[in-house]
Amino acid sequence: MIHHADLDDYIVALPKAELHLHIEGTLEPELIFELAQRNKVSLPYDSVQSLRDAYAFTDLQSFLNLYYAGASVLITEQDFYDMTMAYLKRAHADGVCHTEIMFDPQTHTERGVAIETVFAGIAGAVRDMQRDTGLSSYLIMSFLRHLSEASAFETLEAALPLREAYDDVWVAIGLDSAEVGNPPEKFARVFQRCKDLGFRLVAHAGEEGPAQYVSDALDVLHVERIDHGVRSEEDPALMQRLIDEQIPLTVCPLSNLKLCVVDDMAEHNLARFLRQGVLVTINADDPAYFGGYVADNYRAVAKSLKLSRSELAQLADNSIVASFLPIGRKAALRARIRAMAQ
């Protein structure tokens, strides 16, 4: 039996990339209150505890409603900087060496916040953190799928003049928010434009939506990585394709539990995916809302699914392989994992 303290140290020590993380989903209740006071925003909660108590969701939509309410406190560049830096410090403490952070400009521009403000605050924090600790980050600008494709195009056009200023960090485009009723083909044209512009592409699929959405994200949107993808198991041909083509899945176990995608962590299909050879990774999604950052997710699956140390090392290795890092940096990080796994 592995001693828990030893396993915890091992999980933290593994060099990991976090590839599925919504920066607006890292807002802890304490910071929400602090920013609300700073910006004189009134919240429908009278204390940090009453806000934390509201973090009891029944499904994706009930979470999203609270998520958008929490985001309302983000107004200035400093707010976006503080939120991002708070996350990066937690990730660093968890042994994360590279993050690929999703952010939703439409959540903010719809409230009158300039897209320039969003970029400047988030990028400022990731650059400072890289300089100070070596933790690197890329940004994935994500479209909200419950809004129109026209709105996604507007967001892209508003962001493109910023591309040169942020070309060290902004490398990818994503698609998130409510999956049901918003199939991948709704965004086929804007994703084609992003592909033509040379962005790396990812999309949420197969969380609440069916396995068909995973296939469509691959074939219609031409993404190279699937966020979630847990329902891929419903289609054996798709599963074989994921294995054969080594298409990464960015799985978020505690999120799946909290949003009732699974009823019990012991039932999660992550271990089956891993043992069948799917390039599956572990991520925190919206950790402030879902009860844990990335190391918490590793701990939860290690315990509930009885993963071995070598399987945990495989998950960390998968995260590096699935990242958008340059080949040389990937090789160096993977060598560190191999040395630990001996």
Rank of each mutant, 00 (worst) to 15 (best):
Q192M: 14
L270P: 07
N182Y: 12
A203D: 05
G198M: 02
M239N: 11
D216S: 11
K186W: 08
R241N: 06
E233Q: 15
Q276E: 07
E207D: 04
Y213N: 15
K195V: 05
R241S: 06
E234M: 08
P236R: 01
L249P: 06
Q276G: 09
P184C: 01
N256Q: 07
V261M: 06
H228D: 04
R231P: 10
D227L: 04
S232E: 02
H268F: 09
N182G: 08
E233N: 15
L257P: 12
L279S: 05
L221M: 00
P184A: 00
P253L: 07
G209S: 07
L218E: 04
A205E: 06
P210D: 00
F273S: 10
C260S: 14
G181H: 06
C260R: 14
M265W: 12
K195M: 02
S232D: 02
S232A: 05
V180G: 05
E233L: 15
G198D: 01
F187Q: 03
V180R: 10
K258H: 13
S232I: 07
P248M: 00
C194Y: 03
V280I: 03
I243F: 12
K258Q: 13
V190H: 00
V214Q: 02
D176N: 12
D263N: 14
M239E: 10
R241G: 04
E179K: 04
N256C: 07
R200H: 14
S177A: 12
F199N: 00
V220I: 12
S255C: 05
V251S: 15
A217G: 09
A203I: 08
L279A: 05
C252V: 15
V230C: 09
L218V: 03
Y213W: 15
A205Y: 07
F199P: 01
L254M: 03
P184M: 01
A271Q: 08
C252Q: 14
V251D: 15
E207C: 04
L175D: 02
S215A: 10
V278E: 05
I247A: 03
V223H: 00
A266Q: 13
E185W: 13
F199M: 02
A217V: 10
D176W: 08
S255I: 05
V190R: 02
S232Q: 04
S255A: 05
A237Y: 10
E208D: 13
M265Y: 11
A203R: 02
E267L: 13
R231L: 06
S215Y: 10
V220N: 06
I226Q: 04
D216I: 13
G209N: 01
L259M: 03
L270M: 05
K195Q: 09
D176V: 10
G206P: 07
E233K: 15
M239T: 13
D264P: 11
R272P: 13
L259I: 07
I247T: 10
L274P: 09
A203T: 14
G277N: 00
A211L: 03
G198T: 01
G198S: 01
P210M: 03
R193S: 01
Q212G: 13
